[in-house]
Design a binder for these strands. Structure first.
Lengths: 202, 202
DNA sequence: CCTACCGATCGGTAGG
DNA sequence: CCTACCGATCGGTAGG
């Protein structure tokens, strides 16, 4: 009686997700180049050949991970902007998003740093990051413009201000990635004071 | 008659600088891992063995480049802070510093991005970056505190505000590194409007 | 400082 | 015949 193995096959999507999760952990720990396909395979409990069955190359695995980060971020943003509400509520929600994202998934800043560095040599990744940046800035600009129209903000250059605000968040994110960890509450409070009232004496 | 080459030897320091300049160009173009020691040697017009005569490893070459960036930055900051002057003048000078640094040396943001990514796996580099960050923030905090004492600023959390401002600059730098190039004048103007007066309606 | 070369290891692919 | 893999190994290249 021949033993016939019951299917230990997972669906392609499940396998792909399993590989992506394993690869993400490896890239975070060692960076892109120091991560070997064997590392990814071992972490995914497959052979290297098995990984190559699902992905054509190491680079495509990394791109898929950047794409996933992109999708998560844009989905959240649309949710924030679609909901009506006043400026303060939306900015607080956006701020919460970033603070929570850093806190809940401490790996995100690190991954974004690795992705940004990869973008210097990988045009598809660069395009994704530029698109994501533009998406954030457009949403933020829209929020600011609506607030100006409603008289909740003074007349400012909405788009340039949006870029400045997004840059602030990116800078904080980069600091966290390298391990510079400012007190979160103080930073959030100071940032909202800065945004709200500026530095000028009352 | 044996041909005896007139000394084509440069001083060790000159050679080291020549190698560092060549290496910097290579790292900027290809990143750390894709840069081979042969690439550096060729760019420096030496053999690979020649490069290894002056530096013990590829990693030490990269660390020396980060150190050089560190020295440049701290020297400039001390210059800005030592000069007396009112807040606006100092912030403008600091702002000019960054804007000029991005403009005059367009490679700097890119190099800093590569260095930040390297810091994830290289503790000495990470320490240098953290020290540099702390140095910037301390200087900026000192400027803000002096301005508060002089009544030119309202009472704010100087250090947390300094971190926010430095993050803003870092975020802009990161954007430039990836090739997101906002209009400089608009961004500077919006940033100063934000810092000066905040967003609240007058 | 170069030439010649090593020990080791890599991403990707073959046959079954 | 196909699918989802694995063990083994290739050609080429790396830092030193």
């Amino acid at each position: 009686m021949r033993s016939r193995s019951v299917t230990k096959h997972k669906s392609p999507d499940e396998r792909a997700d399993q590989i992506l999760a394993a690869a993400r952990a490896c890239f975070l720990e060692r960076g892109y180049f120091a991560t070997k396909m064997d590392d990814i395979a071992r972490a995914a409990k497959l052979s290297k050949g098995g990984v190559y069955f699902h992905f054509p190359s190491k680079r495509e695995i990394f791109r898929a991970l950047v794409q996933a980060e992109f999708d998560r971020a844009t989905a959240f943003m649309d949710q924030v902007v679609d909901e009506e509400g006043d400026l303060l509520a939306q900015l607080l929600r956006l701020g919460d998003h970033f603070v929570e994202a850093f806190a809940a998934d401490a790996t995100m800043p690190r991954f974004m740093l690795i992705a940004a560095e990869m973008s210097l040599r990988d045009e598809p990744i660069r395009q994704m990051l530029l698109e994501l940046q533009e998406a954030y800035i457009e949403r933020l600009t829209a929020i600011l413009e609506r607030a100006i129209a409603d008289g909740h903000l003074r007349q400012i250059d909405a788009r340039a201000t949006a870029i400045a605000l997004k840059s602030l968040v990116d800078g904080v994110q980069a600091a966290y990635a390298v391990g510079y960890e400012p007190n979160r509450d103080r930073l959030v409070e100071a940032t909202f004071a800065l945004i709200g009232n500026g530095l000028a004496p009352r």
